[in-house]
């Protein structure tokens, strides 16, 4: 469990980092290293070059505006988790990060690194997807913004080009009268989830549900977003505001996910979990939305 030989680069500026990425084909970017280092040690990945961006101070940023939260490539999970203004603008971010592994891993791992790693069982890709966020990519060729829907291509596969560095991710703010919830079921506390859901419920001025979306992790090749507006309508039909029945939404979601079996749980159990978690998360998000308007 020692990595294959590689050339180590420790650029001190973004331009320098992008220069190395442009020159060295097959270079991998090292940020928090919580996924990459085990892959290297197990020799499941053997890049010839490693570009360690930990000295690129300009990437260690969190910018919070009313529009949303812009997280720089070196912002550690813990820092984002503890940023009170980020949690105010987009509570889902903090709620999800609390499910990312354990504190020591969150102290080192980065939010943007987790997105770039594109593990469909990870929490943050699902959050970015359900919020319709974006990844900002830079290369020596220039910069571009990649929408979440186009960023995740498959398991551990993102839309980043080999010479590109994900320099930031933008998590849009929650609209007014929106409640969020993040729930997952994992075998052990802090494990990758068997299934998980990031839920958003938005109320209109009459306190009727006007938007309901859920992002799912662990149940497909990429984070899956399901618009639950249709079952939401059924959920509140003939009911007073705040007493919604999300069981139809659960069934709706169950039919639209395509989980796989693995050694920890079979597909049918994961599908069942999607239903249970959907119902619970939508209920919790609805409650949070009402809480917000009170």
């Amino acid at each position: 469990m020692k990595p294959s030989p590689f050339e180590y680069h420790a650029p001190r500026s973004l331009d320098e980092a992008l220069g190395v990425l442009a020159e060295e084909a097959g270079a991998k970017v090292l940020a928090g290293g919580q996924s990459l280092i085990p892959l290297l040690n197990m020799r499941l990945a053997a890049p010839a070059h490693l570009v360690d961006i930990n000295r690129v101070a300009e990437l260690d940023t969190i910018e919070v505006s009313e529009r949303g939260v812009l997280v720089g490539a070196l912002a550690r999970h813990t820092v984002v988790e503890r940023a009170a203004d980020a949690a105010r603008v987009q509570p889902l971010l903090r709620e999800a990060i609390r499910h990312v592994a354990h504190p020591v891993i969150r102290n080192r791992g980065t939010v943007v690194g987790s997105l770039a790693h594109a593990d469909p069982a990870a929490e943050l890709p699902a959050v970015l997807a359900v919020l319709g966020g974006e990844v900002e990519a830079a290369s020596a060729r220039g910069r571009r913004t990649i929408a979440a829907g186009e960023f995740f291509l498959g398991p551990l596969e993102s839309a980043l080009d080999p010479d590109e560095l994900a320099i930031a991710a933008f998590f849009p703010a929650a609209p007014p009268r929106t409640g969020t919830a993040f729930l997952e079921t994992a075998r052990r506390h802090g494990d990758y989830a068997l299934a998980g859901v990031a839920a958003l419920v938005t109320l209109d001025e009459d306190l009727r549900v006007s938007g309901a979306r859920a992002g799912y992790l662990g149940v497909g090749a990429v984070p899956l977003v399901i618009d639950l507006a249709e079952p939401a309508a059924a959920a509140q039909a003939g009911r007073p505001p705040g007493t919604l029945d999300w069981s139809a939404a659960a069934a709706f979601a169950r039919e639209r996910v395509d989980p796989e079996s693995d050694i920890h749980a079979d597909a049918s159990y994961r599908r069942h979990l999607v239903g249970v978690l959907t119902e619970r998360a939508m209920g919790a998000a609805t409650a949070a939305a009402f809480e917000g308007v009170r």
């Binding site: 085990p38 354990h102 075998r187 052990r188 506390h189 802090g190 050694i263 920890h264």
Partner: peptide, 23 residues
């Protein structure tokens, strides 16, 4: 978790679920 060919599918602490203190 051995598969039928005798490969141990969970030969790491990621997939061999030794409980954490939280469990």
């Amino acid at each position: 978790e051995y598969d039928e060919s005798g490969q141990l599918l969970n030969a790491s602490f990621m997939d061999f679920l030794m409980p954490y203190a939280t469990e």
